[in-house]
């Protein structure tokens, strides 16, 4: 009996380990500093997680499809810089700057998707290379200058980052709506099913008549679309941007997605879980700040979180913490 109880406790821990860890973390931080679960603080965390969260939605598709996207950070810088620059360009203005920026960002996603989906190149290498290439592209485009909107009072452009609707900040609203939409696409449509199949077993998917290349290609387009949306919010919130605004975000995004329980091996994960992962990451970072640790500590913490999450994932699969095979 006791043995049985230990076993079921073990399997709960294995399956819900991250949630359990999160609750422990929340409780201990609240005991440390009650301000942690102050309603304003909670909303603050959600609000500041929106940009990261939107990017994580897209990367969730890529990861479930069995690939990685490390180019989202520099792609975010690119889209923010481009939309700001075009906004300042009299030939465009805000109304044209936004669709133009989306088109350009989607092109970058299409390059990823073509190389990884159709040419079957390794996604780690392709997107790591893209990270660097897009960074160079952005710097070339901007000439290394930061972009700012000159007449901030004469544009409606700030609505995406600073606006509120129904008492909810617009970034949070976009995050939630996009999460709901993409969540339904992933869980309920034939396309979503194909993403799981391709990531779960690409060969079997091919043998089942699923166009593997096209499905992978689409996941990178979705990822790029999410980055463009996040870039728009980023640019609008600060009404200006540095060339490096998205630097390092690829790892945070990946941490959130894995933390939510999407397997790096592909084929598993959900949008809802990713949203949870985003919030967990947000609260951990916030908690560390409240604890008085320096902001830069979170880079180290992000890495630790990735390692733990990946380890937990693989340990759950093989039912052991360590094994010489498989």
């Amino acid at each position: 009996m006791a043995d049985q109880a230990m076993k079921s406790l073990g399997s709960v821990l294995a399956r819900q380990g991250i949630l359990v860890a999160f609750i422990l973390f929340m409780v201990s931080f609240t005991l440390w500093n009650p301000r942690f679960i102050d309603i304003d603080n909670v909303f603050g965390v959600i609000r500041s997680s929106a940009i990261l969260g939107i990017m994580a939605l897209g990367v969730t598709f890529v990861v479930i499809g069995g690939n990685l996207d490390l180019s989202v950070g520099s792609m975010l810088s690119f889209s923010a810089i481009v939309v700001l620059d075009l906004h300042e360009n009299p030939a465009f203005g805000p109304a044209l700057a936004i669709p133009a920026m989306f088109a350009m960002t989607l092109c970058l996603g299409a390059i990823n998707g073509f190389l990884i989906g159709y040419l079957r190149l390794n996604s780690l290498i392709v997107t790591l290379g893209m990270l660097s290439a897009i960074h160079g592209l952005t710097l070339t485009y901007s000439g290394g200058q930061n972009m700012d909107i000159a007449n901030q009072n004469e544009t409606w452009f700030d609505v995406f980052g600073r606006g509120e609707a129904l008492g909810i900040p617009v970034p949070v609203l976009i995050f939630l709506l996009l999460a709901a939409f993409l969540g339904i696409v992933l869980a309920k449509t034939p396309f979503g099913r194909k993403v799981y199949a391709v990531g779960g077993n690409g060969t079997a998917a091919t043998f089942s008549g699923i166009p593997r290349a096209r499905v992978v290609f689409m996941t990178y387009l979705i990822s790029a679309f999410c980055v463009a949306t996040a870039g728009l919010i980023q640019a609008s919130r600060t009404m200006g941007a540095q060339n490096t605004v998205g630097q390092g975000m690829e790892l945070e995004v990946l941490a959130a997605v894995i933390l939510g329980g999407a397997s790096l091996l592909g084929g598993s994960g959900t949008i809802f879980k990713t949203v949870i992962g985003v919030l967990i990451l947000g609260f951990i970072q916030n908690g560390l700040l409240l604890a008085g640790l320096e902001f830069y500590v979170q880079f180290v913490v992000t890495w630790i979180i990735i390692i733990l999450a990946v380890w937990l994932d693989i340990a759950t699969k093989r039912g052991k913490l360590w094994s010489p095979i498989a």
Binding site: P190, G200, N201, A204, S208, G209, I210
Partner: peptide, 21 residues
């Protein structure tokens, strides 16, 4: 295991995979 099934996917979804569209 390699070509026929997505092992992590449930029975129903595996069976309907070629015609899910």
């Amino acid at each position: 295991k390699e070509q026929g099934l997505v092992l992590g996917m449930n029975c129903r979804d595996n069976m309907t995979l070629p015609q899910v569209g």
